[in-house]
Design a binder for these strands. Structure first.
Lengths: 147, 147
DNA sequence: TTATATATTTCAGTACACTTAAATAAAAAG
DNA sequence: CTTTTTATTTAAGTGTACTGAAATATATAA
């Protein structure tokens, strides 16, 4: 059996623990809001990437324009999203979170942060320092990889 | 404005980057298998926590026993899951991944691992060492927090 | 044993996410 | 100024995930 690199092994172990906790948390939170997972994902994505057009939604989630339109309609009805006209293209719509929509997502993020803070509180000062250093390294590397 | 602890800040930044990448990846992979997200989640969970009964499924996913039974039925039909009798309680069923089911999930995990390995390869040797040390600390702390 | 609680399934019905096809309106190309 | 492409919506219909209620079988308590 090939000896797996330590770095690979530790990344995997962390991913395993972290992913399960996070996914469960998000699903639970989404359910508590009364929104379906697809609807919730659209809000998340809008929060993360900022306002965008209808077509971007359908591309990113790999659904037809019709499906995107219908999902967005529900979110607009629910008061989470607003559909403004794109000033540069009068065919297109600009989707933007409303104050309520923004608040909803922020609350979800905050709940996730609570777990991370609790985690951090279990660490000693020197451990914390090591973790900070490593996470900065990882985050930078990940961002570079994206582009 | 209150100065946010460094540890908290770095954990959040990492979560942000990592979560988006991972969630997208899983959703994409699940779609490519032809399974629905709820079906896929059940396989994931079974892989993660090992064989369990019907009732555990309905509890963990917060759905009725009826819904769990129907989802499982589809996975059994698809050849991903087997429903054995619980030797200790003849009312209950023991759900276990088949070889195919196991393979499916492992393939998904491997795809996620590829990204992590790519990430790791961008780091220098000393950076890798720091990351390993930190992730071990985090993973241990997270596991303790779970129990 | 009898009564009751538990684990699961089956059925009927609802809601939602999706798709295709057709409609509308505006931009871009000829 | 047509013609064609692009962005979105609407409508009709399909499949899946759910729920509640009722059925079945087994465990557990009286």
């Amino acid at each position: 059996m090939p000896k797996p690199a330590q770095i690979s092994q530790s990344l995997r172990a962390w991913m395993d623990v972290f992913m399960h906790r996070s996914m469960r948390g998000w699903a639970h939170f989404a359910k508590s809001t009364g929104l379906s997972m697809p609807q919730f994902s659209i809000l998340m994505q809008l929060h993360h990437k900022g306002p965008c057009g209808m077509s971007e939604i359908s591309e990113r989630f790999d659904i037809t324009a019709a499906a995107a339109s219908q999902l967005v309609e529900k979110l607009v009805q629910g008061g989470y999203l607003e559909r403004a006209e794109d000033p540069h293209d009068r065919r297109a719509k600009l989707l933007r979170l409303t104050v309520n929509g923004e608040k909803l997502i922020k609350d979800g993020i905050q709940e996730r942060h609570r777990w991370m803070d609790e985690l951090a509180s279990k660490l000693g000062t020197d451990e914390q320092a090591k973790v900070v250093e490593a996470l900065v390294i990882l985050t930078e590397a990940a961002k570079k990889l994206e582009s």
